[in-house]
């Protein structure tokens, strides 16, 4: 799982919504995960690779598959809403895909409460995507509470990344 700095995510999302034919190459350069000079020849795009705008890899890395939350909160942040705008646009364009939105919590808190809190977070992301027109039947939610941390230190630097809702794609041509 590649983790993008927030500022880059925002830029990538903004770009992904436009119709600039060079956007794939530009995104790549912004995301810092490829050609540092920017621009990948279109004929070099491998289906399913991160250069393929209809791929899961593209969704995860360039659109951004996750939104983060403040301590004990399930309200979407401005950055989170921006990421979800990108997800909504992508999901409407790539209508073969379904998604399960996974809600997570940091390790502070009891197992049961964190399951419920993760569900709130996943649901907040789902509600936002629904408000942008993504059909309800394509979006399911699940909470893992504090059971699936991606960062394992016991301080805020890790906790901030673990308090998340991740849109996990299923279906599509390349999954």
């Amino acid at each position: 799982m590649k983790f993008l700095p927030m500022t880059v995510l925002v830029a990538a999302v903004a770009l992904s919504a436009c119709t600039n034919p060079d956007r794939f190459g530009a995104d790549d350069a912004l995301a810092g995960n490829g050609n540092p000079n920017g621009g990948v020849p279109l004929n070099s795009i491998q289906p399913g690779s991160a250069n393929d705008p209809a791929s899961t890899a593209y969704f995860n890395q360039t659109i951004g598959d996750r939104v983060l939350f403040e301590v004990d909160q399930s309200n979407l942040t401005p950055i989170g809403r921006s990421t979800l705008d990108g997800q909504a646009t992508w999901l409407l364009t790539n209508s073969d895909y379904q998604a399960v939105i996974e809600g997570h919590a940091d390790e502070q808190g009891t197992r049961e409460y964190n399951l419920a809190l993760g569900a709130r977070r996943a649901n907040a992301a789902r509600e936002y995507l629904l408000s942008k027109g993504v059909p309800a039947g394509r979006l399911r939610v699940v909470s893992y509470g504090k059971e699936r941390p991606i960062e394992i230190c016991s301080n805020e630097a890790c906790y901030a990344k673990n308090r998340r809702a991740v849109t996990v794609l299923a279906g599509g041509l390349t999954s």
Partner: peptide, 9 residues
């Protein structure tokens, strides 16, 4: 038990 529906438990 707890049941969660629409984000509410």
């Amino acid at each position: 038990y707890s049941l969660t529906q629409g984000g509410n438990t």
